[in-house]
Nucleic acid binder design. Structure first.
Lengths: 201, 201
DNA sequence: TTTAAGAAAATGAATAATTATTCATTTTCT
DNA sequence: AGAAAATGAATAATTATTCATTTTCTTAAA
């Protein structure tokens, strides 16, 4: 079949990434053996090194590719909405929707990734900044529209909001009884607090 | 000198903890060798194992003891203040004050600790919950006083606030140019947003 | 269509490097 | 003298990574 070689290559690469997400989410990054990932992906250990420089590169690739995917989805959702207030609420809601939709990926991105010393200390997470930029852009829009307080620094605000979203997601992921963090209510409450705090009186 | 043996023991234990904070803050947890810590503490490698079960136990001990210390300080500061609104602002301010006062410790608690798989996955961080409880208690007080919205869930709010404080501290710690996060302004902005979002109209 | 040579991809057993931890010995204290 | 504390060289266990070998794919000549 024409092109089947290339397609199979992609399949194999995808299989490795998917297997890594699954295994790392289940056993944690440090306990996830390359051989575990290889087994789940149905490839030999060595094959992984044809596609990734080393174990950590798998983690960083997951981050980069999945974040870009997420950013695309969120941007698309936001395009359908006008008005800074509703757009901010949509952003908050989408964050939780995506976490719930892909809990294994969320665990890797929000918990395991941070056990990579390299990621924390040296890596420039461009796509994280792109994600944050979505939030700060909404703030700026709102300030231009006059619905958001002009004295709020979008840079500080974006980190506050991200911190809150992130922490609550992490607690949801880690909690055994996830009912303690009902997403619908969590999103509504965060949205309500941040929005009230942000809007002009 | 009477009691000098016991005091020296404590000295040695304290020296190890202080050395660990210093070395881990500088090199990161995984690159911090037991022998590095021992050297800075002026003890033999083996001596560390007379005081701590293993490397991770040092990290957990730092967490427990320093968090208790922090909680004591913050509680003391709060005791001097009445009114839920001012108490919440004080809590926020204190968080940043302590981070700036002990940047190496903050780095260990807020960044390196989270590279401990055990801490993330199995450990019950009682003293973190005690710290969060300070926040949620203030909310409840405010709700009873009638100055805070009764529809806000203190449990969700405490995590949102903590997430925001934590994320901004982390960014301050990691940023080369810390001027990008002027603490005074950051504390003021977070306080302003969370308070406006929380107060009854 | 068949074949075969060479290239590319995949394999997985062997390796190599690392460093937390131990413990036989020494030093200090009571 | 005996106990307690401290030492630091030796150990032991781990697993990511490598690479010699095998398998699969590609191409083009017969």
């Amino acid at each position: 079949m024409a092109g089947s070689s290339k397609r199979n290559q992609n399949d194999k690469r995808t299989r490795i990434i998917d297997a890594a997400i699954q295994v790392i989410a289940e056993k944690s990054y440090h306990l996830a053996r390359i051989s575990d990932i290889a087994k789940v992906a149905s490839v030999a250990d060595g094959t992984i090194y044809l596609y990734f420089k080393n174990k950590e590169a798998i983690l960083l690739t997951i981050f980069e590719e999945k974040m870009e995917e997420l950013i695309g989805i969120v941007r698309l959702e936001l395009d359908a909405i006008t008005g800074a207030e509703d757009r901010l609420l949509c952003f908050i809601e989408q964050h939780f929707i995506q976490v719930r939709r892909h809990p294994e990926l969320a665990r890797v991105l929000q918990i395991e990734l941070r056990q990579s010393s390299h990621f924390i200390h040296d890596y420039r997470p461009e796509s994280l900044w792109e994600y944050l930029k979505i939030a700060s852009e909404i703030i700026k829009e709102g300030q231009e529209e006059g619905v958001f307080r002009p004295d709020i620094d979008p840079f500080i605000f974006q980190w506050s909001l991200f911190g809150a979203l992130d922490e609550l997601s992490v607690q949801w992921i880690l909690s055994k009884k996830r009912e303690r963090f009902p997403f619908q209510q969590v999103a509504q409450q965060i949205g309500s607090v941040f929005l009230s705090g942000l809007t002009t009186k």
